[in-house]
Design a protein around this nucleic acid. Structure first.
Lengths: 165, 165
DNA sequence: TGACGTACATAGGGGGACTATATATATTGG
DNA sequence: CCAATATATATAGTCCCCCTATGTACGTCA
C-alpha cells in the first residue's frame, strides 16, 4: 500500500516476489503486448471517419457535459486542438455547444442523440473487432483475460490520477 | 465492475461455454480497457518526436530487412505512406535503404545502429511508463496481468493472420 | 474602474495518411 | 526478341490532426 513514486521496496507479506526483476519483465512484456494490440486494432476498432481523439472525446462526454478545457485534459490534447475538434464534431452533429448561464465564457459541450449513436457504433465495432481476435483463443486464455481486466483498468486509473495531480 | 462469474474456478476441464454471453461481455470490457490504455499511454509511451507509425516500422525491422511494401503491410499503412515514412527515417539516420541485387526495383530497408538505439529508447520509455502504472497495483493484479500476457499476444497473432490471408 | 486571470477562439505551420498517378524494372505471350 | 502486362516504389495533391503563439471576451479582485 505504498504510494511513493517508483518505489521498488519489498512487498511484505506477499507470497510472490513482485519486485524489480519480475516487475520489470512484466512491464516489458505487457508493454510489448499493449503496443502491438494498439497498433493492430486501431484501424479495426475505429469506424472509418472517426479519429481516435474524436472517439476519446465522445467517450469522455458519456458521463455528462464538459467544458472545452476539461475535455482537452481528459483526452490529453491542447485546448486549441479540443476547440477545433469540438467545432468539427458540432458541424457533424455529434455534440452541442451550450452556453453556461452563470459564466458566459464557458461552453458546455454535450452529446446529441447522433453522438450517442456514434458511441454505440464505436463500441459495437470495438467489440466486434475484439471478438474476432478472441475467436481462436482457448478457454484458458479467455479466462486469463477476464481475470486481468480489473488490473488493466487499474493501470489507467493510476495514470489519470498522476495526470490530475 | 465485478466480473465474478468469469473467474477461474469453473474451468477445470469443463466445457464452460465461452459462447455468446460471457464472450461478448469479455470482448466488451476488454475492448474498453484496451482503448483506454491506448489513449492514456500513447503519449507516455512514445518519446517526443517519434510517431506510432515510426515506432511500429522500427519494431517491424527488428527481425531483419524488409521491402517497403512488406513494411506497409506489417504496419497497416498504404505503400505511399510507408515510402514517405522510410525516406523520413532515412533522413533521420534510423534506417538505410539498400538496393536488392537481384531485383533493382525493390529497396531493402534495414536498421542502422542509430535505429537500434531508438528502439531501445522506445522500449525503455514504454517499460518505464508501464512500471509507473503498475506501481499501485496489488500483487494479485500483477499476477493476473502476467497470466494474461500469452492471451494478449494471441489476439494480435490472430489479427495478423487474418490480415495476411 | 482598471489590472489581472480565465475560457475559449483564431492564426499559422508541420506532419501523417490517404487516393490517384507516374516511373522504373521484371515477366510473359506471341 | 519485343510489346504488353505486372510489380515495386516514388511523386503529386489533399485533408485532417496537433502543436505553439496570440487574440478576444468575460469574470474577479483591489
Amino acid at each position: 500500500m505504498n504510494h511513493g513514486p517508483m518505489d521498488l521496496r519489498r512487498l511484505d507479506g506477499q507470497p510472490l516476489n513482485w519486485q524489480s526483476p519480475e516487475r520489470l519483465r512484466l512491464a516489458d512484456e505487457l508493454g510489448a503486448a499493449i503496443v502491438e494490440l494498439s497498433m493492430r486494432l486501431r484501424r479495426a476498432i475505429l469506424p472509418p471517419g472517426i479519429s481516435l481523439t474524436q472517439a476519446g472525446t465522445l467517450l469522455a462526454l458519456r458521463d455528462g457535459p464538459q467544458r472545452v478545457t476539461g475535455l482537452a485534459d481528459a483526452v490529453q490534447v491542447t485546448q486549441p486542438t479540443m476547440s477545433a475538434l469540438v467545432m468539427g464534431m458540432e458541424r457533424l452533429g455529434w455534440v452541442r455547444r451550450d452556453t453556461d448561464g452563470a459564466d458566459r465564457r464557458v461552453v458546455a459541450v454535450c452529446l446529441t442523440r447522433t453522438g450517442e449513436k456514434v458511441i454505440r457504433d464505436l463500441e459495437a465495432a470495438r467489440t466486434r473487432a475484439l471478438l474476432a481476435g478472441l475467436d481462436t483463443l482457448p478457454a484458458l486464455d479467455l479466462a486469463a483475460l477476464a481475470a486481468a481486466i480489473p488490473a488493466l483498468r487499474g493501470i489507467t486509473q493510476h495514470e489519470s490520477k498522476a495526470v490530475a495531480s
